[in-house]
Structures are given as structure tokens and as C-alpha cells.
């Protein structure tokens, strides 16, 4: 039977919702599911992890360094835990997971399965390549520890209501001092997190300025939605990078995605392929976004979007 360790992610002292998605992937693999939470004192996130359905044990690893731990300091700690007979080490494929897990894999001398999107067996997965324009099935022959990251858009979050045991865990690992966190500037705000929001409204280059982006935020707020953007809108400085949706931004799977003034480049589509319903608003009837949209509306977003907001508000 598999024994799976999930590396939890925390943000501003709270358990990140993507951790429950990694647990869902572990449930598909099947086996004993443990979650490792790294912190420097506050056990809150560990308690939150214990509530996730399917988790049998939470390991709380305390270390002064873990307040602002980066991949280089976390990886040796994960590897120290891995020695306890784990068959799988998983994390969500967020920027944190992407930064950390290859470091873990390299310390163990094993390959990594990035972006697991479906589970065929304990060592047999589907993952996307070419921005999701092809799917490969990969197997891990042998019995080395399986290190992987979980595509959050492919798994619904595991439920709550559990009360797994939380145990303190001391790890014996030498932590390097060559990496220092200077600061984090997080946009955050009150809108739902893109990676877990059930509705998302995004704007593209067509918005033309950060002031104009207000109409996107207003529609998002009317719908209780997260707000996203194309790369072009981020590059132009209309909105911050954490709003970028796509191959190199966030890969999301909301029930409803509304793309406003976004042309539909393959790199953008890579981020929204698993959305339930895609709505496209674009004034060019030939825009490629209409090829994958479930509902398309040809029109000027500066008229259409405020109308939508008003009628839905």
C-alpha cells in the first residue's frame, strides 16, 4: 500500500486551499495519507490540515527557519521526513510546489512527475505537455520514491470535517544559509483566490489601462468572482502578475470563466481548458477565443461588461 506524504502550503499563516487538492490526488492514488506542515510556532495550519478528509496524520515540523522557509531550506527537511518509508511525496503545482519539489527529487536522485492531472495507478499518471495541447501518460518503473506535483485545476478539493492526529516532528537536517527572504509583496485583496474560485472574470490587453480594469473588478465583485488577466494585460502593467492566467500564470478550473477582450492565444487557453463554462466577450468575431468558448458575445467590452454588472448586481 502507498504511504503518501503531502507537503502543505501556507500563506500568511494559513493553510493554502490547494493543499486539499493535493490530498484529493493522494486519495486517487490510495493509501495512508500524511500531511507535513512546516512552521515556526503557530500550529493553526496543521490543525486546518487535520480537518481535510482522507488525511490520517499531520506532521507539524517546527523550526525557527520555517517562518520564511524557501525551497532550499525546506527540501532537506522534506527529505529527512521521506526516510520514514514514504512511497510518494506530493505537493500542489503552485509556484511554491514547483520551486520545492524538484529540489527534493534531486536530493533523492529521482525524477519528478510535474503537474499530475489524472491517476491511473500508484505510479501511472497523466500530465500535460505543450501547454496542455497534448497529454502524456507517464509511468515510474522501479520502486524509487515517487515525487510529484498536482495540477490543482484537475482535482476538486478533498472535503473537510476530519480530525486527524497532529504530531510534532523534529527533523534532523542541516539547513543552508545561502538563501534569504527579503520581502513578499502580495496583492491578495478580498477577492476569491484564483486557483480555487468557482467563478473568474478576466481582462486582456483590450482594457487599455489599469483604470479601465475597474470594470473587470466590478463585474467580478458582482459575481463574487476572482479576477484574472492575460499576459498582455500584466505585461502592460494594468494589473499585477499574480492575476495572470495561462501556461505561465495560473491554471484554473472555475465553473464559470468570463474572458473580456482576450484573443485566446494557446498560452492563455492552456490556463482555462478545464473551466466549466467559458464565456468570451470580444469585438472581433474571428477572435480564436470563440473557438473554445461555450458562449460567445461579439461586442465592445466597454459597453457589454458594465451592462452585465448592472443586470447581475
Amino acid at each position: 500500500m502507498s504511504k503518501i506524504l503531502i507537503v502543505a502550503e501556507t500563506l500568511s499563516g494559513e493553510l493554502h486551499p490547494t493543499t486539499a487538492k493535493a490530498v484529493a490526488c493522494a486519495q486517487a492514488i490510495g493509501g495512508d495519507i500524511h500531511v507535513a506542515v512546516f512552521g515556526s510556532g503557530d500550529q493553526g495550519p496543521a490543525q486546518a490540515a487535520a480537518e481535510i478528509e482522507g488525511v490520517t496524520e499531520v506532521l507539524y515540523v517546527q523550526h525557527d527557519e520555517n517562518n520564511a522557509a524557501r525551497a532550499a531550506t525546506l527540501a532537506p527537511q522534506v527529505v529527512a521526513l521521506a526516510a520514514e518509508g514514504y512511497s510518494h511525496l506530493l505537493a500542489a503545482n503552485t509556484t511554491t510546489g514547483k520551486d520545492l519539489m524538484p529540489r527534493v527529487a534531486a536530493l533523492l536522485g529521482v525524477p519528478q512527475v510535474t503537474d499530475i492531472m489524472a491517476v491511473h495507478g500508484p505510479r501511472d499518471f497523466d500530465r500535460p505537455i505543450y501547454a496542455g495541447n497534448a497529454i502524456t501518460r507517464v509511468q515510474a518503473p522501479g520502486d524509487f520514491v515517487l515525487v510529484g506535483t498536482v495540477r490543482t485545476a484537475s482535482f476538486g478539493a478533498a472535503g473537510g470535517g476530519n480530525s486527524a492526529a497532529v504530531s510534532d516532528k523534529a527533523v534532523d537536517a542541516e539547513l543552508p544559509s545561502h538563501t534569504r527572504l527579503v520581502e513578499q509583496k502580495t496583492g491578495g485583496g478580498d477577492r476569491p483566490d484564483l486557483q480555487t474560485a468557482s467563478r473568474v472574470v478576466s481582462g486582456g490587453r483590450a482594457l487599455g489601462s489599469s483604470e479601465n480594469f475597474d470594470i473587470i473588478f466590478k463585474l467580478a465583485d458582482a459575481l463574487g468572482a476572482g479576477a484574472g488577466a492575460s499576459r498582455a494585460a500584466v505585461d502592460a502593467g494594468y494589473v499585477p502578475n499574480d492575476m495572470q492566467v495561462g501556461q505561465t500564470g495560473k491554471i484554473i478550473a472555475p465553473d464559470l470563466y468570463i474572458a473580456c477582450g482576450i484573443s485566446g492565444a494557446i498560452q492563455h487557453l492552456a490556463g482555462i481548458k478545464d473551466a466549466g463554462t467559458i464565456v468570451a466577450i470580444n469585438n472581433d468575431e474571428n477572435a480564436p477565443i470563440f473557438e473554445i468558448a461555450d458562449l460567445g458575445l461579439v461586442g465592445d467590452l466597454f459597453e457589454v461588461v458594465p451592462q452585465l454588472t448592472e443586470k447581475l448586481g
Binding site: R70, T95, T179, L181, E183, K185, N241
Partner: peptide, 14 residues
């Protein structure tokens, strides 16, 4: 400066 899911993070590395 690193682009992370939550925004921007600044690291100093030797």
C-alpha cells in the same frame, strides 16, 4: 524578484 502565485517575492542568494 520572483513571480509567485501570491505576488512578488524578493530573495537574496549568495
Amino acid at each position: 524578484d520572483r513571480e509567485i502565485d501570491a505576488g512578488i517575492e524578493t530573495l537574496e542568494v549568495d
